[in-house]
Design a protein around this nucleic acid. Structure first.
Lengths: 223, 223
DNA sequence: TCTCATATTTTGACTAATCAAACAAACCTA
DNA sequence: TAGGTTTGTTTGATTAGTCAAAATATGAGA
């Protein structure tokens, strides 16, 4: 059984790897993501390499093996099902469930997870729009077009909102920037470092986001 | 924050102390209950004494302080609410929830716990009939008359069934020996080391339990 | 009250995960 | 390509929790 620390490293590595699939993740990046000093990551990664979960290339970086990826998907499935459960069944706010799920994902058995999955009707995505991996390790491809890279004048549907910052999620919710919402990009000006969007079916006028914020919202083109 | 190991020691100590309130629990007993060697308990208890959770009398035993008891009740509240939740909301069998709750009780936040409490309608007892401590630390007194100490010919209501052995719980359920059931003791013979009970409103004839099993069922007299 | 069995404590060692700080390699850049 | 910066690795320590086995205290019986 993988310890919850191991699960966290593997999950984080999966996450970092998503940005550039197949590439080696540098140790420093993983250290920052995990909130530990680089030396700790070196030690840990060598142990994970010994147990076959990662490929480690000294001084270059690290990458999940197939087995490591399966573990990551398993953890992610737990995390995302728990998040949805907390919103759907217990009525928590989507901005707070990420933190809660960080703990619960390590404590939940497969049996309980299956019950939750059934109770929720075998959902495909968590409250932030991220796909929930199936028990067999399949995952739907997730939307990867960031709002910060969108075209002015075009219309999109929000697919996914990065889930780790509670403040940002509250802001997004207040402005109707939630998965499923249809928006039109009014401007996306690199020099102003900002994006303006109009949210369909909403009374308030357009809202503006800095590009750092816009980079946390992922969309799919409509039509 | 108490680690989950600390929470386990405190919870176990509370449990051992229930048998004889106020008495010192010998180290050996706690070691056996925790499944560790005695030396480990000595070390751990000294640390718990330093943090004010227990009173430790070397070579005599250990006892919870008021603060330790509050922590125990808090852990127990989580444990029992989780058990009931698993039965009521997720449909698990009462024989399997104890194990599941052992893990979950350490991972659940107060916020989630409150939601569960509300969802279940602020229940007073877990699926095995043990009282659920209130958030403020109050607990109802639990039934302490063991079926093994019952009087032949008398009628009782089952209040509580010890929850740790899944096999026994399955047996109890099959025979209608669940909290709330009304039973009449037909015989309780010390020399035969067995108790025979008739379960009201049940077609099968009386069922028989060894006194070790009967000691795990707690009853309250009717009339 | 002496002795022995039993319970408890101590000591030394181990694992997992971490940090601080010294060290080494890689990589720019002039 | 020589130097300096950045990035990564090593080393030595630390904390929590544990075990094995040696040492010690307690209490009960003779």
């Amino acid at each position: 059984m993988a310890s919850s620390t191991v699960e966290d490293y593997i999950k984080r590595l999966y996450h970092e790897q998503q940005r550039e699939p197949g590439a080696l993740v540098p140790m420093g990046r993983l250290a920052e993501a995990m909130g530990v000093v680089p030396g700790t990551v070196t030690t840990m990664i060598k142990a994970l390499a010994d147990s076959g979960l990662v490929d480690y290339e000294p001084r270059a970086g690290v990458r999940l093996t197939r087995g490591g990826e399966q573990l990551a998907l398993h953890v992610l499935r737990r995390h995302r099902l728990v998040e949805l459960f907390l919103v759907q069944t217990l009525g928590l706010d989507w901005s707070e469930v990420h933190q809660e799920a960080e703990e619960l994902e390590h404590a939940i058995s497969d049996k309980v997870l299956d019950r939750i999955d059934a109770l929720l009707g075998h959902p495909a995505a968590d409250p932030h729009g991220s796909p929930i991996p199936r028990a067999n390790g399949e995952v739907a491809q997730q939307a990867n077009l960031a709002l910060s890279a969108s075209e002015p004048g075009h219309t999109y549907q929000i697919a996914r909102v990065a889930d780790s910052d509670a403040r940002f999620l509250q802001f997004a919710e207040r402005n109707g920037l939630v998965p499923g919402a249809t928006i039109t990009v009014e401007s996306n000006d690199a020099s102003a470092d900002a994006v303006t969007v109009r949210c369909h079916g909403r009374s308030p006028a357009a809202c503006m986001l800095g590009s750092a914020a816009a980079a946390r919202i992922f969309v799919t083109p409509v039509n």
